[in-house]
């Protein structure tokens, strides 16, 4: 019997559902749930991590991330404008910086900032201590990435926008600040969100600076607890803590994009 087109398609769809369910069922059946629960879901360990995981670790992760993002955004915007400048040395410096810092691991840069700056300027301290070092250390790398994103955003704003602004008598700087850059930032919201999420996870590199009980962040807290209790449950909790940041963040950005959609 020959099947008609719609029957064939429906059959193919059901077969795919079945295969999918089968794979999951096998995985569930084959896994040793008792041992898994023992290794990753000890309720007493989860309870012992609260409230510190929220009040200290998560709070610090968010602070480090926002600090690095703010630093990177400001510095990255400056680099982007330098890349687009008429002044040739600005372009050279910005290009060299971007190439250099995109090529170095964030861990290395963090080390250099955390230990290099105190050696170079023994009289001075980085403002904000660990927070400042992380904001600058991670921000330096993030700025290199963001600079290229922002530059692309600025160049994606139609040339007529700058012309219209200049025609109204605005200076190049005023036109950039009030007309071009606000539009560029709307364009680069999605890639900048990516950068923010990457930074959230990179903030776990803070451990190389030797964090204390007060400056500890989520990953380090999870690993310390893991070592104390000789159990992997803290890793699960730490993972959920990151998702507690990144998932709502995606939602917020989606809202933001919708709100700007009519003003594009």
């Amino acid at each position: 019997m020959k099947l008609r087109r719609r029957q064939r398609e429906r059959l193919s769809l059901w077969l795919q559902y079945l295969a999918f369910i089968a794979v999951i069922a096998v995985a569930i059946y084959a896994a040793d749930w008792g041992r898994l629960r023992e290794a990753f879901f000890r309720v007493d360990i989860i309870e012992s991590m609260f409230p510190t995981i929220i009040t200290v670790a998560l709070r610090n992760t968010i602070l480090y991330t926002l600090g690095a993002f703010a630093f990177g955004l400001v510095f990255g915007t400056i680099l982007a404008l330098m890349r687009l400048s008429r002044v040739a040395p600005y372009r050279w410096v910005a290009t060299a910086y971007i190439e250099l810092f995109r090529g170095l691991p964030a861990l290395l840069v963090l080390f250099l900032v955390g230990y290099g700056i105190p050696i170079a300027f023994p009289e001075r301290e980085i403002p904000g201590g660990v927070f400042g070092s992380i904001a600058i250390g991670l921000g330096l790398t993030a700025a290199a990435y963001m600079a290229e994103t922002i530059r692309a955003g600025i160049q994606a704003v139609p040339k007529g926008q700058m012309e219209a602004a200049r025609t109204l008598g605005m200076s190049h700087f005023t036109a950039m600040r009030t007309i071009v850059i606000p539009q560029a930032f709307r364009i680069v919201i999605p890639p900048l969100t990516n950068e923010l999420i990457l930074l959230t996870k990179d903030s776990s590199l803070a451990y190389v600076l030797g964090v204390t009980a007060q400056t500890i962040e989520v990953t380090k807290f999870g690993r310390d607890t893991l070592n104390d209790r000789v159990n992997a449950t803290p890793l699960l909790v730490a993972g959920l803590a990151y998702l507690a940041i990144t998932l709502p963040l995606s939602q917020v950005v989606r809202r933001l994009e919708l709100r700007y959609a009519k003003a594009r």
């Binding site: 007529g160 012309e163 025609t167 539009q183 709307r186």
Partner: peptide, 16 residues
């Protein structure tokens, strides 16, 4: 330029 208005083919209003 303050004293010279200009109207473009593609309007160039500020969309934001």
């Amino acid at each position: 330029r303050r004293g010279i208005g200009m109207v473009f083919q593609s309007f160039n209003l500020f969309p934001h």
